[in-house]
Amino acid sequence: MTSWLKKIMVAATLVWSVAILNAPVQAGDYPDKTITWIAPFSAGGGADRWSRTLSTVAFDVLGQAIRVRNIPGASATVGWQEMLKRPADGYTVMLTSPTPIIALSTEPNAPFKPTDAKVVCYISAFRGIILVKPNQKWSDWKGFVAYAKANPGKITLGSTFSEMVGAQLAFKSAGVKVKLIPYSSTSDSVTDFLGGHVDAIGVTESTALNLVPEKASALINVTTLPLSKKISEKLGNPPHAKALGFKTINFPRWVAVHPDTPDAIADKLAVKIKEMLEQKSVKKILKKMGEEIIYVPRAQAQDEFKDMVKGIQEVATVLKK
């Protein structure tokens, strides 16, 4: 690049960046411009659908638009990294799941820590349910524990990583040992389960409702969150690991901003997100999608988040060996 061109470019950058930087970061005015909303997963996934649903009411609630950006890659850590690169002014928000925490816990060269984020709130959570074949001796929890204790490591459990973390924690508390078969997608694990190639699978509620009772029976809910009464009945009232006193974790959809963002802004954002979730149209769309709003405010979400990170780190090492 010739030197005059460089000078022009530097000058242009300076003028623009001065214009941008002069805007003070204050919670009072927040938000006074478009918010970039990072969904670190591919378009069409759960985080993406939630983000796009919320963006439909952003203007009514915030007075500003939300621009959803899908930045997937490296188990959702690329999107997180992008948030950390941007200013800590609350104009870059991320909606994600436990997936990047799992990745960061197993990656020796991780560029940042799972705690490098300021949790704003939880907006939902999914439950992990273990399914087994119906109408056999160990189709219920009691029979399963007895069978698994008599045949340690014989039962195969196919699942994606997050449900596997839940299952491993709960089974360990129950003194049960199964063989964990990792799958990259739920559709693959369900196909192998239906074909009789694995004995048990870990799935989310909606998948479980598809398969129970004809093709599977629900063994146990391995997450902290209990099932709603209606769904629990539909699934044949499986036991709840938390109620049995087992160790469990939650799989939340959590919203976060840059860790250096002022608390006032994070608090305001949390309130606004709650307001967005309460909009009729949002409720309607989410209900249609079969998604459940489980709002956890900032203080509580931060505590639960710490527990989740600890739980995942503990299990990640177990799965390696």
Binding site: G73, A74, S75, E107, N109, P182, L319
Partner: peptide, 23 residues
């Protein structure tokens, strides 16, 4: 990317963003 069973990174030349392998 990562080992399909242990889910630990392999053959990534030590680059964290190669963790999901080559798309």
């Amino acid at each position: 990317g990562s080992d399909p069973i242990g889910l630990v990174p392999r053959n990534t030349f030590g680059l964290w963003w190669m963790r999901d392998g080559v798309p």
